[in-house]
Design a binder for these strands. Structure first.
Lengths: 229, 229
DNA sequence: TTCATACTTCGATCGTAACCGAAGCATCGC
DNA sequence: GCGATGCTTCGGTTACGATCGAAGTATGAA
């Protein structure tokens, strides 16, 4: 009864709607100020301030002071992963905040999930990488093959550099809209970064959507074809 | 702001101490009655009843009516995984319900985690399987090798039968006491079952400890030697 | 049938925490 | 220096939900 870690504390932390909204917004990967977070939480700045203090004390958020602003992000990848897995679970149980259906088509097509590509395009990318033999889906995990490493080099991704970070290279992340896996980890991050870098796509200003240009769209679909069998 | 799954609901569900205690108890894998769960939650049966109804409605619990008893278990593996990952996160942040330290040595040595072996012995088993080449730790996942499959057959585990279930064969599960991975999935379950079956170990009556007999201990340590380099 | 056990529902109480207005700091631009 | 902006702290209100006693339903035993 009093053995083990206290899941009630973080449960309660995430369990408040205002805090949950803020955390979900930070899943976008972008650092947000206290005032912005108050907006997404639908509360005043005073209230947001106390919420943010609690979330930070609980190890879910990190803050960076910059001038008179205070930028908040998810504390680390573990925190992001926790929020993601809760989203996956909630989506699987039909705990949706809005009436289901393709309410936000852009968001379902492509959006950012902490720092990598999610949505329809995210799922397609992983599927394509697997069917082309660039990534092995082995057991419950993902692993980059030698072919994958050389293929990625061709589109300007230096896998060696990614490997040196302590963060796992490939990780699968369950998508709440597609209910299927997409690619996370440092490779997922690097791929999205390269799309943005190439000008294929850009982040929407207010939402978590990733907007592909017509040309970027064409290139992406060509680079990651669907297995048609 | 109102896009995506509602993590606040399940957060709140887990966020109540009484409910969290019940969920943690059910991590033991054993089905418990409403009255027993009231005990672990430290509340009366009436209160427990309303809590359990909420947890069931939230998709975290399943119940099976048997005579005048009502047995509760975690709804499925997804629910168990969610609780486990929250425990892992909470442990990593020092959210412990008791003063740290080796308070419950038996529990740290070997305990059940939903349906597989955790604790020091669980970690040791996975480490040994990896270093002997029975399991490949590839990417962030685990995969059984051919050598592993034949080795397991020798100790009476039919991998083919396990494969036919929809549940993943190998899954890594983060341990809150060891802060390292151990083996979950249907293989993890089968291994623990075989230890119990062979009489090497038995479940403690009231806690989640797995108690090894002197002989079982000897066999286990011989079967899963530590890499000493 | 009658009694006992396991559990649920109802009704009322009570504590905690979310909330906001107002005031207090800190930082920036001027 | 001054005012404006971003954020925190304080105090008091309010609402929600956890809690339990009491009564109600279902199952089993005698």
């Amino acid at each position: 009864m009093k053995e083990g870690p206290d899941i009630a504390q973080i449960g309660a932390l995430i369990g408040d709607p205002a805090r949950a909204n803020m955390l979900a917004a930070l899943t976008g990967g972008r650092a947000l100020t206290a005032t912005e977070l108050a907006g997404v939480g639908g509360i005043t700045v005073q209230t947001a301030s106390t919420h943010l203090a609690k979330l930070e004390a609980g190890g879910l958020l990190a803050q960076r002071k910059q001038g008179r602003h205070r930028y908040f992000t998810l504390a680390d990848e573990a925190a992001a992963r926790l929020i993601e897995s809760m989203m996956g679970f909630a989506a699987g149980r039909g705990h949706l905040r809005h009436r289901p259906g393709p309410k936000e088509p852009a968001l379902r097509k492509a959006r950012i999930c902490y720092d990598h590509l999610a949505g329809d395009y995210g799922v397609r990318m992983l599927d394509s990488l697997i069917s082309s033999g660039s990534i092995d889906a082995v057991g419950d995990g993902l692993a980059l093959t030698e072919k994958g490493e050389s293929d990625l080099k061709c589109i300007g991704i230096d896998v060696g550099a990614l490997r040196s970070s302590r963060r796992p290279l490939c990780r699968s992340c369950l998508d709440w809209s597609e209910r299927r896996a997409h690619l996370a980890g440092s490779l997922g991050k690097a791929l999205l970064a390269s799309f943005l870098d190439k000008g294929w796509a850009r982040r929407a200003a207010e939402s978590r959507s990733i907007l592909f240009s017509p040309e970027g769209d064409r290139q992406f679909l060509k680079l990651f074809p669907l297995e048609t069998n």
